[in-house]
Amino acid sequence: MTADLTEVPSGRGVEPRPPVRREPPEEHPKLPLRDRLTRLDVKFTPYLFIAPFFVLFAVIGLFPLLYTGYVSLFDWELGGDEHPFVGLGNYTALLADDQFWNALFNTVSIFVLSSVPQMITAVLLAALLNTALRARTAWRMGVLLPYVASLVALAIIFSNLFGKQYGLINTFLEGVGLSPVDWQGNWFASHVAIATMVNWRWTGYNALIVLAAMQAIPREVHEAALVDGAGAVRRFVSITLPLLRPTIIFVVITSTIGGLQIFTEPKLFDPAGGSGGGFSHQYQTVVLYLYQAGFQDFDLGYASAMAWILFLVVLVIAAANFFLTRRIASTGESE
């Protein structure tokens, strides 16, 4: 990819904020450092810093990854004794599988319906939370509450909302003389309902991430603009937003990945709690299908192939979103 993600910027272009250093509790005598030690430090310490992630990944993350990769090359029945080698057979079968393409379409559709409104709302919400509110902690943590609510409660509440026959929304629609919506049966309506659930659960979460980045913007920047007479909206658009770029990129990439792996919400939305994604798979997502293939049909090889294809799809879409975001975030600036 490009520099935004991977290169170390050499400065921020503004004067550094005075150090918010916390004095260590006791006084340390200065240690005379020899050059060699410094050079070793510079050369090897970075690897030491990143080692925990990679060591643990090698011990625990890599094996499952290789295992699914290996299994995907076999006709591997879960718990079976013989696993004939089929090469790329699972992959070619998958690409010819209508249900897979249907699931991919549903995934992307729900993703688009949820991510766009979610990003915009999250940034605006973060801006509101970044004001001099009374009882700030309470407000900020309040927006995280959806994530803490129990899934049992959510399943009931959302089906009370989106129920076809007794749901609140349909009761309301009929009350004002409109025709009720088939939230389960109609594919688009079901995607909207699931996207609503996703947005409800994750907007606050993303807003907090953006908020954290907003707070890292040095006060001097704001001060300067304030002195220059810039209004609140102007300062938000021309100062806050551009400085949020690394964070926006982070949010876009992580929610692209999360959105394309969506699983919990469509599973909760199924009235029987299954992984079929509706009676005609009208809202079955790729991960639901993967789950169904692996744990219901016991076709572990096929499910593993699906996991790998999804992985590639996610990478491609995440990369595309990354470039798109970078472009949007850098418009209106002098390059």
Binding site: A3, P9, S10, G13, E223, L243, R245, E333, E335
Partner: peptide
Amino acid sequence: MTALTTAPPVRRPGRSKRLKASTLLER
């Protein structure tokens, strides 16, 4: 590195005023 150019104008020394946090964050 576009990140460099995204920054607003550098504050000129001397024009700095102490502002309270509350004036800085919108009320």
